[in-house]
Design a protein around this nucleic acid. Structure first.
Lengths: 334, 334
DNA sequence: CAAATTTTTTGTAGCGCTACAATTCTGCCG
DNA sequence: CGGCAGAATTGTAGCGCTACAAAAAATTTG
């Protein structure tokens, strides 16, 4: 009685388009995959009819028959900050330029990441872009066995597949040297261990190295498990000042945290950079907007994305990590 | 000479796993798709062998054979703010609960969106989640012809597929009434036209309605093409004060813009909310962190995502838009 | 204008998996 | 211990497309 009279979507196949256009299915296939193989006139007829019918080639069938696809998969740990935004934009742009489509999957835990990779593998994507961080133990072998091109962005030497990253250590040294050159002596460093810890791992040794070289104490290190949002910036400042009231600079893990610390300084009536220099990391939007503007490290995340695609597409997976540029952005806060 | 001795990745198929486990391919298939149909003992053997071999079922083949997949596709206009972050998180969580995987594609223009939808259609996804905004003209018909379940998040009556959204008009009225109740009289409203304009469309009429009802002037409307980042907040404040130096409140399109306006107020020595009330929209992280904290509208974007998945999975595409909750978050700035 | 060449178009034969029906195996009752 | 219902397993027959080789058509050449 109450049956909804659904439209009969007899599924369109290449054959339907071929019939309507008076050509063979292979010609339709060629129109989509190798336009150059088909005469201009034939192609335009076929494409017009395909569009009229609303035909979209079945990629599943195509991938199955061809054994490969023109889709690249990326797994992201989260989409919260502009680094990842720029990274994804770089991936997408570079993929598009080379005729690939990019699909992304979000995974917040190693288990979710593993599951996402399995889906991507199941889709038989042409390549997989991972982000450095804690991985499930089975992940590496799974990817090796699958034999798919893989890159690990922000990954260093032990990367799964090939690493694509900027030199975090060099950036950290440059930033530390800058603070020292500005006359800072009691510099606090915030070390992050949880979550994306791996991506930050080289910062602390580099910091220590420069502090040591300058004959300064590298003991003002605060270890936090995770640092997200402005709130943690405030908490970090709290703890640092409790440890050493004469602190004259802090190195924060991200611009967001730095902004949080900055707001807290303002709340306490501390002048930045007069009393305390505050340095961020990552060149997020916010760092350009707060007052004073934040001195930070710019990672050109879009270049990382672009590099990742190039590595995946070129198939040069076995080489040393690809290094992308970075820049020290000296602004007002330090 | 310099040939890299590549490992011979003879592609693993279900047959290989079946042989190794001493069962038929169909049993392997059932283990993955319908675990209940297989005896516990058989299943554990098969799954163990599959894991050892690093076998991952070919979803392309599966989708082709079954005619449908357990993957849902979402197209996002950008990933810049926490609304979309929460939205995606809601999508992902709800999809996982129902045994679906979520893949996302980013599209910044209507053309890119169309292309993304074609890829998703080609993958024969089980459903597509769109975000309201300007669409390519062909998009609607393409989706109708494809007969795929579609939802348009933040979409209203004219949505492609089924709309899932909170009542933007009601939220705007509530916020306006709140400002009026606080004694504000010269209230400026920022109207956004470009990009995601559609998602904001109902705000201005609702604002006017309440201003009119209160016998106030609704003429302080500033129209901007796009409002992104803190910078536009500063510019907007500039322009409003040039138009009416006695302005006592502004309604910003997002918390980010509101924060920018707030910073600009502080730079000019204007007290918030003393001299000017500033209201944001969207309940982004930043609104909780700046001082004063921002009064805003909370959209529960994760609920929109959850609702979208429910609509897609249940197949109830023809009904009226699904309405999700919202809340007026009264904080310090207004 | 026939022969040689190049460009277009077209069959054939699967790709790896799943729906479905048919078959074989269990355990259990009379 | 035969007979049976129900559970577990297994063939069969494609899903829609593309690689490849072969055929046909268009173009050039002698």
């Amino acid at each position: 009685m109450s049956e909804t009279p659904h439209i009969l979507h007899k599924k369109l196949t290449m054959q339907d388009v071929a019939d309507a256009a008076g050509v063979s299915p292979m010609t339709v296939s060629n129109c989509f995959r190798y336009p150059d193989r088909v005469r201009e006139k034939t192609r335009s007829t076929v494409m017009k009819i395909a569009a009229e019918l609303g035909y979209v080639p079945n990629l599943s069938a195509g991938t199955l028959a061809a054994g490969s696809s023109r889709v690249i998969g990326a797994v992201l740990p989260s989409m919260r900050n502009s680094s990842f935004y720029n990274y994804t934009a770089g991936l997408r742009r570079a993929a598009a330029e080379r005729g690939f489509e990019l699909i992304t999957m979000i995974a917040e835990t190693p288990e979710e990441e593993l599951s996402a990779v399995q889906t991507l593998l199941g889709l038989r994507v042409a390549g997989i872009a991972l982000v450095a961080g804690p991985h499930a133990p089975e992940l590496r072998q799974l990817l090796v066995l699958a034999g798919v091109p893989v890159v690990e962005s922000w990954g260093g030497d032990g990367a799964i597949g090939r690493g694509v990253s900027y030199d975090v250590g060099a950036a950290s040294r440059a930033l530390t040297r800058h603070l020292i050159a500005q006359g800072r002596r009691r510099i606090g460093f915030v070390e992050v261990t949880g979550g994306g810890g791996q991506r930050y791992a080289m910062r602390l040794p580099a910091f220590r190295q420069e502090m040591f070289a300058a004959g300064l104490s590298d003991s003002l290190v605060l270890t936090v498990r995770a640092a997200d949002g402005f709130g943690s910036g405030a908490r970090i400042l709290d703890e640092f000042l409790a440890t050493d009231p004469n602190l004259d600079a802090i190195l924060c893990p991200t611009d967001v945290v730095a902004a949080g610390a900055l707001f807290e300084c303002q709340r306490r009536g501390l002048s930045v950079p007069g009393d305390i220099a505050v340095a961020g990391w990552g060149d997020y939007d916010i760092g350009r907007q707060v007052s004073p503007t934040l001195t930070t490290v710019r990672a050109f995340s879009d270049e990382i994305g672009k590099g990742a695609i190039e590595v995946l597409v070129s198939g040069e997976g076995a080489k040393a990590p690809l290094s992308t540029p970075f820049a020290l952005e000296v602004r007002e806060s330090a």
